[in-house]
Design a protein around this nucleic acid. Structure first.
Lengths: 132, 132
DNA sequence: GCCATTAGTTACATATTTGTAAGTACCGTA
DNA sequence: TACGGTACTTACAAATATGTAACTAATGGC
């Protein structure tokens, strides 16, 4: 999320990934806190401090980084008001709103299948959680 | 993807994430090569060596790791035939097949929006690609 | 015995992401 | 002049993910 080496295998491989529309899309929402943030912003716009309060477990640094990445990717619009103390508001763009129905389905999938897995694989919930 | 410390902030934070059905679902397909693999397997089952040939840019190690993770998560079924040389086949489970329509929509989203972003943000495609 | 084949595994190195803690800038108010 | 509030930024450390290269095991065919 910081700077990237332009010629690592890791970075070169990324090109293989995002040539596909599907992986391209998933990559955009793949950051650790992005989906949580996007979901939150679905209802209304939020100030930075409000998001910070809402997601107390996300550090300021990460919140900033994820918001910036979302902004770069055109999913979030950032509005700065020239006041003191500063006020910055974040809201979803059209592009991000188009994710709405997809999120709904993914969420349904999650709700439906998370219990199934526990039984199928005979792994305790906590164990299953530990794995990627 | 290897072993995880059970009490790092990183790991503890994961619990915050997967409590949400949506992020739970996205996490399952979030590995670097998982979507590519799942897409491939949508059409038919594949042997390990076939996948290796298909995705020449994925190393054996990563291919194995991603397949194992998918298996753990109940998205892929692994069948070993007791032959020499060994034969192992991978195929999607019901759970994974349920992703089908969602993948389609995500892919559509990707196709529709990847061009838009380039214009909107005035970043060259190659630059945009470098960012997460 | 030696080699080829398949499906891995192992030890190690590198890259990237995430987390911690402290510091910055602005200005109005006390 | 010191202090508080907001929205960050910076330097650094820890954790995780990915990549490289070499090695394994079983067995049929030479």
């Amino acid at each position: 999320m910081a700077t990237r080496k332009e010629n690592s295998t890791y970075t070169r491989n990324e090109k293989c990934i995002i040539e596909c529309d599907l992986t391209y899309a998933v990559n955009k929402i793949g950051g650790r806190w992005k989906i949580l943030i996007l979901s939150k912003l679905e209802s209304k716009k939020f100030r930075f401090s409000e998001l910070k309060k809402e997601f107390s477990f996300i550090t300021e640094r990460m919140l900033t980084l994820q918001l910036r990445a979302l902004e770069q990717d055109g999913l979030v619009k950032r509005t700065v008001y020239a006041e003191v103390p500063p006020r910055v508001e974040y809201e979803l763009t059209e592009m991000a709103l188009a994710f709405g129905p997809i999120f709904k389905q993914l969420s349904d999938w999650g709700g439906k299948h998370r219990n199934l897995t526990k039984q199928d694989s005979k792994i305790s919930p906590s164990e299953a959680r530990g794995k990627l």
